[in-house]
């Protein structure tokens, strides 16, 4: 894979990704992990204490955050490159929402 200099140094901030992760985990902790089907009988209103504790104490490794940033960078890059390919085929120099719409289904399947 190309190094950061070749990429132009453009990537996401691991601290930002960590903050979003923490926000999602805290929400999941409050909801009790979001388990159970709609048809299941609700026995307890409060989530199990161990579940919420586990969600609260979830931590992300520094290297795991960097890989997450790279995954996200690839996602954004692919979205632009695929849209640019469609725009080029149509003979325009601006990527419009219609170009993104055409690549979106496959893009979301790939990620």
């Amino acid at each position: 894979m190309e190094d950061e200099a070749a990429r132009g140094g453009e990537t996401f901030d691991p601290d930002l990704i960590r903050a979003i992760f923490k926000l999602v985990w805290s929400r999941r902790g409050e909801r009790g992990g979001g388990g159970g089907d709609a048809g299941d009988e609700v026995i307890e209103v409060e989530p199990a204490p161990e579940t919420s504790r586990r969600n609260r104490s979830a931590t992300a490794n520094a290297s795991a955050l960097k890989v997450s940033c790279e995954l996200l960078r690839i996602f954004v890059t692919e979205a632009v490159q695929r849209s640019a390919f469609i725009a080029e085929a149509e003979g325009t120099t601006t990527i419009e929402p219609t170009h993104l719409e055409r690549v979106l289904p496959q893009l979301l399947l790939d990620f």
Partner: peptide, 26 residues
């Protein structure tokens, strides 16, 4: 790519990226 990215496209990609991060976190 020698292209200009319109604002609605960037906004849409940003929204998709946020949803991707949320799903990744889970």
């Amino acid at each position: 790519a020698g292209m200009e990215v319109s604002d609605p496209v960037v906004a849409c990609i940003a929204d998709l990226a946020y949803k991707t991060v949320e799903q990744l976190a889970k």
